[in-house]
């Protein structure tokens, strides 16, 4: 069963609706004691990474998150929280994955926020991406991105520059796009996550 880290950063209606459509059971994690009830975890998140981090800190859940050894999936800002720093509000984040979150530079002649369906190219075989077509499109909405790093980026997307679409460090995974809004490809990814061991 999936535990969703509940810390008040944005609405999770779409995420729970997607899990309902797929028939996956889930519950909310509000206190450290709740982690034991689940065998995998999603950290959602929309909005400002700095304020999301502040809200997460206020829940007191971070020490437990750092110790998790079951699969964890951060989505969008929830993924960015796994990194060590964001240029959004010059915020210090959890540092679970030693990468930085940066602002798309409009000097690259791109429109920001990066909005829409972009191609995601897998670099490393991963059970999270099983059954998903190479170069499948996923739905992105974000102004900040996680830098590309060959040690942790398992799939990339290009928008003026190459950036991390999917990262992994041990049992911690993050996706910059919204699988709950990414049609069949997104549903496949959530399905894969529900089966990770």
């Amino acid at each position: 069963m999936i535990g969703i880290v509940y810390y008040g950063a944005g609405n999770i209606f779409s995420l729970t609706a997607a899990l309902d459509r797929l028939g996956f059971e889930y519950g909310m994690i509000r206190t450290a004691g709740d982690f034991d009830k689940y065998d995998r975890y999603i950290i959602p998140g929309v909005g400002h990474a700095g304020s999301a981090m502040k809200k997460l800190e206020e829940t007191g859940l971070i020490p437990s998150i750092l110790k998790l050894d079951k699969p964890v999936l951060g989505i969008c800002v929830g993924m960015q929280l796994l990194t060590e720093f964001s240029e959004e509000g010059d915020s210090t984040l959890t540092g679970i994955v030693p990468l930085k979150t940066r602002l798309f530079n409009q000097d690259l002649q791109i429109k920001v926020p990066h909005t829409g369906w972009n191609r995601v190219s897998a670099l490393t075989p991963s059970a999270l991406l099983d059954g998903i077509l190479p170069e499948a499109h996923f739905y992105f909405v974000h102004s900040y991105f996680i830098e590309f790093n060959s040690n942790f980026t398992i799939a990339l997307a290009e928008y003026g520059i190459k950036f991390s679409a999917v990262i992994q460090k041990d049992n911690f995974y993050g996706v910059q796009f919204h699988p709950e809004k990414s049609g069949l490809a997104g549903e496949q990814l959530l399905k894969n996550f529900s089966q990770l061991t």
């Binding site: 409009q106 690259l108 002649q109 791109i110 429109k111 990066h114 829409g116 369906w117 972009n118 191609r119 995601v120 190219s121 170069e135 499109h137 997307a157 290009e158 928008y159 003026g160």
Partner: peptide, 21 residues
């Protein structure tokens, strides 16, 4: 200044961002 990178859609490969319907 033209701020758009993909002035010739489909010809430049700097982005895989799809046009939306």
């Amino acid at each position: 200044m033209n701020k758009i990178i993909h002035t010739l859609p489909g010809e430049l490969r700097e982005t895989g961002l799809a046009k939306r319907i």
